[in-house]
Design a protein around this nucleic acid. Structure first.
Lengths: 206, 206
DNA sequence: ATAAATTGTGACGAAGGGTTCATTAAATGG
DNA sequence: CCATTTAATGAACCCTTCGTCACAATTTAT
């Protein structure tokens, strides 16, 4: 019973669990939730099927655990960006960049996130979705409150801050999709400043 | 062998086919592709399972037929909006409105379109997706060419027209998602002008 | 060293879904 | 009115997948 409260046994167990999650992420993001069997996950993780079921009570539980972990770490980075030092414009830039970083650093996570998140409410049982959606909604709310600050400071026009958040989120997502489909052709990192510029100044010439 | 080249027999057959497609749309959009069985479609359409297979050679074929039909009619409306009379700004407004109309008129189609389109490339066999994606890409290209015109005319700033299209598409999608999740709370029709305004003029106050 | 507890195993059962095909029913037209 | 073509049927087949459970291996405690 050493270390940070975890015995060697427990640490090993956690390693095994993480190994399974890692493999599950790989497979799910390669082939989608419904095209991956528990046997496949167990096989690739080099555990027996029963062992997998010792760790996750069923397939959905495995998927939920995976998605929540990912969504939370994803959310965490966005929170940090939005709470960073500097004015609202700098914080927004950090937000866009953080999103870029999360995406480019971890393509398979992103693929899975979008593939099953956008359509998930109709594909997968509702329980998961509400938890996930909550994390997502939190990000949006925090972004909205940043806009609210900006409006109070007179930086932004008086518009509904929540919708501003929706707009910026939608914009970044759109460009991230572009990048996902053709990473060479559409560099998100190159586009990020352009996105923000267009968003801030509009697209009209005058 | 009367009417527009179709015998009564053939018209009846077509009606049956459409009936099956209608039911398939209902079920798929309610529960997602993988959670609907062929037996279920046949049952709800009040045909025997074998009959369903007379019309569609397998489940994927059923799904493909459905999606292509929908995507094409959807695309058609956007094309009309973008080719309407008037300057680029009017055409853009028509585009945003047409999209709103398509969405609000036909919720289940939209649910299905997004649920399986965004993530589809990882969930469903590739063949379908490339056809669908082509329709989608055509819409984007047409929108881009509208922006190109606008840039030549000096209406818009000199930006990549394709990315402008991506941006506007992403923006409208984001707000449509909002509306999908909470139709009362987030009226797309009320937001449409705001979206376009923000897009054109930017969100900065000065 | 031995007993107890924990962790890992994988054959197996049960359920469900996609697809086929032999059969029945209906329509056509000579 | 009958022969032929066309449409509809649904039981049965096969395959895949989830999830269990009795047993084996390994670690920990005594």
């Amino acid at each position: 019973m050493r270390d940070n409260g975890l015995s060697r046994r427990e640490r090993e167990k956690l390693r095994h669990r993480n190994e399974m999650l890692k493999v599950a992420l790989e497979l799910f993001s390669e082939k989608g939730y419904h095209n991956v069997s528990m046997h496949e996950v167990a096989g690739r993780a080099e555990f027996a099927i029963g062992t997998l079921y010792k760790f996750f009570k069923n397939k959905e539980d495995l998927y939920r655990s995976l998605m929540l972990t990912l969504a939370e770490s994803y959310h965490q980075l966005l929170v940090e960006a939005l709470n960073s030092d500097g004015g609202v414009l700098i914080r927004l830039k950090n937000y866009v960049d953080a999103k870029a970083k999360v995406f480019t650093d971890n393509v398979s996570m992103v693929r899975l996130y979008f593939a099953e998140t956008r359509g998930a409410s109709f594909n997968i049982k509702a329980g998961l979705d509400s938890e996930l959606r909550e994390v997502y909604e939190n990000s949006l709310q925090l972004l909205a409150s940043t806009f609210e600050t900006g409006i109070r400071e007179g930086v932004f026009r008086k518009m509904d801050p929540y919708y501003l958040a929706v707009a910026l989120d939608g914009l970044t997502n759109a460009f991230l999709f572009c990048w996902l489909e053709d990473p060479e052709g559409h560099s998100y990192e190159k586009n990020a400043p352009v996105i923000l510029d267009g968003f801030l100044h509009g697209v009209l010439s005058q």
